[in-house]
């Protein structure tokens, strides 16, 4: 398979996966582009230890998590500069902006809240939950992508659900 064939076969899947991590269309386009640039660069070095789609999924997950980390670091730096006084008082980071085209308008508020809780989960739980609940992958497929076992994936999804329930209940108590 050449690069363009791979791109056309997986572009929508990868775009959707990255979108679940970032929930912002602009950031998703940027990261998806980076994913395929890496695929183009590394295609000759690809060893058939896994399927191409598993390999691309791994790249997409790592790029998305790296992007989130970089954004958080930028946010922290922006906070520090704002404490020490910025000339025009402007923050040097972008506020997170929920812009998920796959979410229905009437559910936007609820989904934004749900995603804010998902974003606070540990990376492994978040990945297992997104792949299982949104992307509809089987435990075996997720285990292949995450270099893990189906049992471990099942446990990650369960822990993610429990943590989410706790966070939501806590939030409801605060709001009452």
């Amino acid at each position: 398979m050449n690069f363009e064939e791979i791109y056309h076969a997986s572009k929508d899947q990868i775009f959707n996966l990255v979108l679940q991590y970032l929930q912002n269309i602009e950031d998703t386009e940027e990261v998806t582009q980076d994913v395929f640039v890496t695929v183009h660069e590394q295609l000759d070095n690809f060893q058939n230890k896994s399927t191409i789609s598993t390999w691309i999924y791994r790249i997409a997950i790592n790029k998305s998590l790296d992007f989130i980390k970089a954004k958080k670091a930028k946010k922290r730096f922006g906070f520090i500069t704002s404490i020490f006084g910025d000339r025009d008082g402007e923050l040097k980071y972008d506020q997170p902006n929920f812009d998920h085209p796959g979410v229905l308008m009437e559910q936007k508020e609820q989904m934004e809240l749900l995603f804010s809780h998902i974003n606070a989960l540990p990376d492994t739980q978040k990945t297992a939950l997104i792949l299982h609940k949104i992307e509809g992958k089987s435990q075996q497929e997720i285990a292949d992508i995450m270099n893990s076992t189906p049992k471990a994936v099942e446990s990650l999804v369960q822990r993610a659900k429990t943590n989410l329930k706790k966070k939501i209940t806590k939030k409801r108590r605060i709001l009452r």
């Binding site: 572009k11 959707n16 386009e29 582009q33 796959g102 989904m111 749900l114």
Partner: peptide
């Protein structure tokens, strides 16, 4: 709460993306 995630619809990658890549 994760049941709600099933209602998320799939979107298509923009046509211009390959050119940008």
């Amino acid at each position: 709460p994760t049941n709600r995630l099933a209602s998320i619809q799939k979107v298509h990658a923009p046509e211009y993306m390959l050119t940008r890549i």
